[in-house]
């Protein structure tokens, strides 16, 4: 293949990755923005979303599209419920102390991951895409499902934007984010907002996973990569800045897709991890975030 078409293919792959990444990174970003905590178990909510998607589509025998649509509904609901419970039972008990929360969510990471290992087994399993449809470019054919992932992710992001900026829930969220104590004084049930936002973050990860499940294989260790990538996106985007995170997800998802076609993936990861750590140290407001005065 010539370089031109090759780059086009790489960009399309990058775009699919960016689409899913932006969903899961947005989830991590929301939680950090409102609760001021880092959820290390974020990748496991993603993984569980994919596992539920596989199970649902496996259980429903009809057309794969039916299973997929059911999964799109069931997976985020269950994951959201689990996350909400975890927040109310565990994180509330430690007062969402940032450091203790990291330790607790590391614990949650192990519990979720190992429970899935027991229940689901160590094998990677494939899930049928909801529809087979190929778009033929002059140089290569491309999966129509992958393109639809990009569109679905965009639609979901629009929905999130609508909820945050146009609804009462979004208003409560933003109020809590700006000043927790003031919000409490004004009678906002901060504890509930925290629980809901934590759940919403996990649901976004699960949604991203449902979209990706038909493309990648479902496996109990699949949560680690999106966790690290989401971390990177949130840091580069400026901790807690939604606009920064989305921009960073686009840039990083795209460039990761392209770079890993040219370099050794280990070297690429090594360098990008180091660079991101340095961003956090020397430019903590992120590359795309705004400096707060």
């Amino acid at each position: 293949m010539d370089l031109g078409p090759f780059l086009l293919l790489a960009s399309l792959e990058g775009l699919v990755q960016a689409a899913v990444l932006s969903l899961s990174a947005l989830g991590l970003c929301l939680v950090f923005g409102v609760l001021r905590v880092v959820n290390v178990a974020h990748g496991e909510f993603y993984m569980v979303g994919a596992v539920i998607a596989w199970s649902v589509s496996h259980a429903l025998s009809g057309h794969p599209l039916l299973g997929f649509l059911a999964a799109l509904l069931v997976a985020p609901l269950l994951v959201g419920l689990a996350a909400f419970t975890a927040d109310r039972v565990i994180l509330r008990k430690i007062n969402h102390n940032p450091e203790a929360t990291i330790v607790a969510t590391i614990g949650m990471l192990y519990v979720i991951q190992q429970s899935v290992l027991i229940g689901f087994g160590p094998d990677a399993r494939a899930m049928d895409p909801p529809f087979y449809f190929h778009i033929n470019f002059p140089w290569f054919g491309y999966s129509g499902y992958k393109l639809s992932v990009i569109l679905m992710a965009a639609a979901l992001l629009l929905m999130v934007w609508y909820v945050i900026s146009r609804t009462r829930l979004g208003l409560l969220m933003r109020a809590t984010q700006i000043d927790r104590e003031m919000a409490q004084v004004f009678g906002i049930p901060v504890g509930w907002v925290y629980g809901l936002v934590f759940a919403a973050g996990a649901m976004l990860a699960a949604l991203g996973a449902v979209l990706i499940a038909p493309i990648r294989q479902v496996h109990y260790l699949m949560g680690l990569d999106p966790l690290l990538m989401s971390f990177i996106v949130v840091i580069v985007g400026g901790l807690g800045s939604i606009r920064g995170a989305l921009l960073a997800a686009l840039v990083i998802g795209m460039s990761d897709g392209i770079i890993s076609m040219f370099f050794s993936p280990t070297l690429a990861k090594m360098i990008s991890t180091l660079l991101v750590a340095l961003v956090l140290i020397f430019k903590p407001e992120g590359l795309f975030g705004q400096r707060k005065s």
Partner: peptide, 15 residues
């Protein structure tokens, strides 16, 4: 799945 013990221990300890 012995890492389950690690996870449970971390959560209980910190709580």
């Amino acid at each position: 799945a012995y890492l389950l013990a690690t996870g449970v221990a971390l959560i209980l300890l910190i709580m």
